[in-house]
Design a protein around this nucleic acid. Structure first.
Lengths: 283, 283
DNA sequence: CGGCGACTTGAATACTATCAACGTCGGTGG
DNA sequence: CCACCGACGTTGATAGTATTCAAGTCGCCG
């Protein structure tokens, strides 16, 4: 599972104890990119690491909510299960992401978190966290901020799901993933996917075939390179500006002319209607 | 604007002062359905009401975040604006809903809240709230819970957007709206919509034409009654069980037989593939 | 080697969007 | 008062995108 291009994360932060790894509050805050409480005599408060193997569930739907989880290494997916047993992928958490927030409300998890690779997860017991929050106001502030950010992220997801074409969704998915990898210090241009086409499709509201076709189309257009799960973003700028054809009525002249040019450029109608050249011209 | 079937909300809760209405902490907590802090010598902490006329914005995108808002009466929409100026409706808040959470992160509002009818909104300054939260732990707990609930709501929205057919989306929209009205003490069966077809479509990821057609189809099928914005849910149970035809491969025999029967029943292919009779048969 | 899961690709279908015409309702001003 | 207008809504015809169904390939593991 770790045969990819990512360096194995070194877990030098933390102490070994009883064969497990532990982190203190400062390390946890760093991981979450939130300011750590300044003075802390609580250096002895330690948080346990737990390892999950690929395929294992960190928490399941309906499970009693007792703790939050912070991803220290590895890749996961969070899913909803509908009444027919179909998975709906909600997110692909990775290092630094917080899991389990959905359980705070009514004390039960509403979603399921599954490890896509071997993972190292830090347990942040909610009781402990609450106590710490009463002590350090900054912590609580940070928690509000993280939850608010998560909310905004989901709002953007909603906007993307209901307004973008299949090609635009896949393009954004790839560039977002690249940006997240960059922020973690990995390459934002060349990476490999940890999830199946089916999971990508579920996440984007598409079928796996559509995802596969779109990736192939991007590949033929030279926007990306694809070899199974190995992805190379060859023209990230073009991908980022890829959108559905303008929903605003009023630029019909432009779109007509352009669509001719574009479809002449790339054989079939695989080229997104509001493609590369156009987007550049708009800037 | 208030010529509808809803009784005008009486605002006897709160005090008039300088021509404005004010509410204390206990009233605010009731409105949000969260437990009020038990002992409170802070009875003198009052929160100002502000009235917005239909069409006015409570907050706009990019605006500095200073206060949260609680809907005391009226109906709103929250929207995202994309790079072409198109609106993406995110929610339709009404009495008891909390607005502005998205501004906590990075101190700027990510979305816009617009009044769809005349509204009475309670201001909950974030600074004030933070101070109160430090005093009353239950308050903070409640805030986490509300934000968590909001997160779960958006997750369900994502699942709905990416997995359901147009008919199922509209059906759920109607039943959800009915349930919310019920909880507020209004009729959950007969109500009128406060938003245009375009806004519904934006919310559901559909065009206004599709929304209109679907409502007409439901009407002809006897599931609902429609007269402009006056809606009557005649068969809420059927609406609630309306889904897209099962994405799980494996019940092809059933779906084929049924689709014939159903399409024979209602002229063209307006009948959702997994319709009323089928759903009942499955239970 | 056989089999399975993941992936790709093709062809046909089906659903939804788009474009367009028309109807309704309210408000406004001649 | 009536004509006009604009916003909203309905309905039809058509087009196009994404899904579905169906092979077939590839890589991996027992």
């Amino acid at each position: 599972m770790q045969k990819n291009s990512f360096p194995a994360v070194s877990n030098e932060a933390g102490w070994r104890c009883h064969g497990n790894l532990w982190s203190n509050l400062r390390e946890v805050c760093e991981l979450l990119h939130i300011p750590a409480p300044a003075a802390s005599a609580d250096e002895e408060v330690l948080f346990q690491h737990v390892r999950f193997k690929a395929g294992q569930r960190v928490h399941t739907i309906g499970q009693n909510f007792e703790t939050l989880y912070i991803v220290n290494s590895g890749f996961l997916k969070t899913v909803l299960i509908d009444e027919y047993g179909n998975e709906q992928v909600l997110s692909f958490p990775m290092k630094g992401d917080l899991l389990g927030i959905d359980g705070i409300h009514n004390q039960h998890h509403a979603s399921e978190a599954v490890a896509l690779s071997d993972c190292d997860i830090i347990l942040l017991p909610y009781r402990t966290f609450s106590v710490l929050g009463r002590t350090y106001a900054e912590l609580e502030q940070a928690m509000y901020s993280v939850m608010s950010r998560e909310l905004v992220r989901e709002q953007l997801m909603i906007g993307m799901l209901s307004a973008l074409s299949a090609e635009a969704k896949v393009a954004r998915f790839l560039t977002n993933l690249g940006e997240r990898f960059s922020q973690l210090g990995y390459s934002g241009k060349f990476f490999n996917l940890r999830m199946t086409r089916h999971e990508i499709g579920s996440y984007l509201g598409l079928t796996l075939e559509t995802v596969s076709r779109t990736l192939s189309a991007f590949n033929e257009m030279g926007l990306i390179s694809v070899d199974q799960r190995q992805i190379g973003l060859l023209d990230a700028a073009a991908l980022k500006t890829l959108r559905r054809l303008p929903p605003t009525k009023g630029r019909n002249k432009v779109s007509e002319k352009v669509s001719e040019k574009v479809s002449a450029l790339v054989g079939k109608n695989l080229m997104p209607q509001w493609g590369k050249e156009v987007a550049v011209a708009l800037n």
